[in-house]
Amino acid sequence: MAVDKAGNKSPVYTEKYTIDKTAPKVTLTTPKNGATGVSRTATITIKFSENIKSSVNWSKIYIKNMNTGQIVFIGKSIKGNTLSIKMTYKRYPSKWYQVYIPAKVVKDSAGNNLAAGYIFKFKTGKY
């Protein structure tokens, strides 16, 4: 409460705040973990529980060809709650790929980072 020079007291105000301490979580991947027959050119998407933006480990996202161990070249972007990953080159047919999303790769508007890394894999189709 405040009092001015004339002795007038201000009204008492009460405010309640909710502090967001909940980190974003992966809710869906396309393709799903363990999927087979996946398109060799389709964009890979990872949906989160809330809108996201890039964070400190953004450059550490990668996709690996599990048959050769080779890391493949990718481009990535965010729109709303979705992280999209597009490989620069067409994926090889009938090969397993692993997508690695490290902790702190994205954060929400309150600054809460993705707490734990997320890994999933899929196998491409023949064509």
Rank of each mutant, 00 (worst) to 15 (best):
S10A: 06
P11M: 10
V12E: 11
Y13W: 10
Y13D: 11
T14W: 10
T14Y: 12
T14V: 14
E15G: 12
Y17C: 09
D20H: 06
D20A: 07
D20C: 08
K21L: 14
T22C: 10
T22E: 12
T22W: 09
P24G: 07
K25D: 12
K25I: 12
K25R: 13
T27A: 10
L28C: 09
L28N: 15
L28K: 15
T29F: 01
T29Y: 02
T30Y: 10
T30S: 15
P31C: 02
P31K: 00
K32V: 04
K32P: 01
N33W: 01
N33G: 05
G34V: 00
A35K: 03
A35E: 05
A35D: 06
T36Y: 05
G37S: 05
G37A: 05
G37W: 02
G37T: 07
V38E: 03
V38F: 05
S39V: 05
S39F: 03
R40F: 09
T41P: 02
T41D: 12
A42I: 11
A42G: 04
A42V: 11
T43S: 09
T43Q: 07
I44V: 06
I44K: 02
T45G: 04
I46V: 06
I46Y: 01
I46K: 03
I46Q: 02
S49Y: 00
E50A: 14
N51A: 10
N51E: 10
I52M: 04
K53D: 13
S54T: 08
V56C: 10
N57I: 02
W58F: 05
W58G: 01
S59P: 09
K60D: 07
I61Y: 00
I61W: 03
I61H: 00
I63Y: 00
I63R: 01
K64G: 05
K64Y: 08
M66D: 15
M66Y: 10
M66P: 06
M66R: 13
N67D: 15
N67M: 13
T68E: 03
G69M: 08
Q70A: 15
Q70H: 13
Q70G: 10
